[in-house]
Design a protein around this nucleic acid. Structure first.
Lengths: 267, 267
DNA sequence: TATCCGATTTGACACAGATCAATTTGTGCG
DNA sequence: CGCACAAATTGATCTGTGTCAAATCGGATA
């Protein structure tokens, strides 16, 4: 394993506060593997022998039942996934597959569990991570139960458009079919919903989304800190999709109201 | 606070492994309050100053947005709720109200957080509790995304009918409107769904449910350990409803196939 | 550059569940 | 014992979203 990667992992909230020596113990027993695209890393139901860390590429967490399948999250680098299963030495609740060429560090679960006893800081970091993950899923569940599909899409676009500091144009971090599945709709529906939001200040050009009128969108997707986050602390490991790529166009095609203005009225 | 209650709380997975002295520290600063029915204990968005423990009665956790409301869980005695928010000193993501006369113990969050540093066993118990809670919500989310309303109801009935040791008759642990909301449907829909399951070996008489043909029901709601649990460990604090009251009738009105037989083919 | 294959879009249609309104049932309380 | 009110049911109707099928679009490869 390269030092540069170790350094990246070390910076994660889960590991940054633990003793250097303990970090070495943990990573010494680790495996480093690179996979091509569309490789299934984890089969739901299998026992969680490893905590996974994505260092390059990204991983889709999904679940299936009776031939149906749904995307639960997309994990970007550098972050961990399936922490809860590793800790409990329990079967995975979700399957995982690579999206594109992906590099994964595997930390044996058994080392993890002994480390709680050894390093109080690590235990504390784990608690924070799990609490944040839990809250993230609760938010997602509220989203699914309280909002219609269109409202979920509007909320998604609005939160991500405003997650960066300025600029109303960004590219979706994942394919639309994944976004659709994450939001709990079919790709066909997502396509139609996108179109229906054009009347509310959303311009779609392939993967590129431009929010021309955030305040119009905010009327559909009234954001709430309890549903749309973020949590004060910066843990990102919960259920969700990677942050969008904020790339304000040099010369915007469409009239753009300031995001700042819209942001003020969001919550 | 009465000793008998303290003893009950002490038995909870979260507290049973910590040092006696530390448990005293934690509970010494605690408040003990009794509320009538339908009192809102927690307003979503408020800061989580206390960890709550239900010792008598029960509490509904719910969320609302734009005039819509949904039941997230019903917490039976004796168990804790909103652990994650307390730990993170973050705003509650869910509101809470009493169902019937309810007695609550309030443990100051700040004591909780210092206790992690002091008592490694308590830190470890917290980790387990959070991991289990996380997995519980993930299951619920899968349930919502992968199953239709009818399948969710069938799965619910089947899981709870078989959670006890034998007997296919039980009373619902909560009002039907709460069950409906938890399952993500309107009360009207739940009523119709119940009726539609009569053709599949479900008999409804008010709060009393009798499963006359588990195998027929199992064809609709194919259970999966990754969605319907339970987790190997016995933590129950996650998102869900209280266990049903299993009360086999003395002389069953309806022909009942053995549950044992059905159980074998469930997973 | 031409080709191929999956992602996306579009259209027609079906259906699960919601909504609204009206009873009926059940239940706690005076 | 019976009133009062909420829970539950039933019916009629509406609508959001899924399904199926058929184009397009777009990006990777030869």
């Amino acid at each position: 394993m390269r030092d540069s990667e170790l350094a990246e992992i070390r910076k994660l909230p889960l590991f940054c506060s633990m003793a250097e020596e303990n970090f070495h113990v943990l990573t010494h027993a680790a495996y480093d593997q690179t996979f091509p695209a569309q490789v299934q890393l984890i089969e739901e139901g299998a026992v969680a022998d490893f905590l996974h860390v994505v260092v390059e590429g990204s991983v889709e967490l999904f679940a299936d039942w009776q031939g149906r399948e749904t995307t639960m999250a997309v994990v970007p680098p550098v972050s961990t996934f399936i922490l809860a299963a590793s800790i409990m030495d329990a079967p995975y609740l979700m399957s995982a597959r690579t999206l594109g060429r992906t590099r994964i560090i595997l930390l044996p679960s058994v080392n993890l569990r002994t480390m709680f006893q050894t390093d109080p800081n690590f235990a504390m970091a784990t608690i924070s991570e799990l609490a944040a993950s839990y809250r993230s899923v609760v938010r997602h569940t509220k989203n699914l139960k309280l909002r219609t599909a269109r409202e979920r899409l509007a909320a998604y676009l609005l939160t991500h458009a405003t997650s960066g500091r300025r600029g109303a144009s960004f590219t979706l971090p994942v394919e639309k079919r994944l976004l659709a599945s994450f939001l709990g709709v079919t790709p066909e529906s997502l396509s139609r919903l996108m179109k229906s939001l054009q009347d509310f200040g959303v311009n779609v050009d392939g993967q590129r989304i431009t929010i021309t009128d955030p305040s119009a969108l905010a009327k559909i997707a009234i954001l709430s800190p309890q549903m749309d986050g973020p949590d004060s602390n910066g843990v990102t490991t919960g259920i969700g999709l990677p942050d969008v790529n904020l790339e304000p166009k040099e010369s915007p095609k469409y009239p753009i109201k300031t995001i700042k203005e819209a942001k003020l009225s969001l919550f």
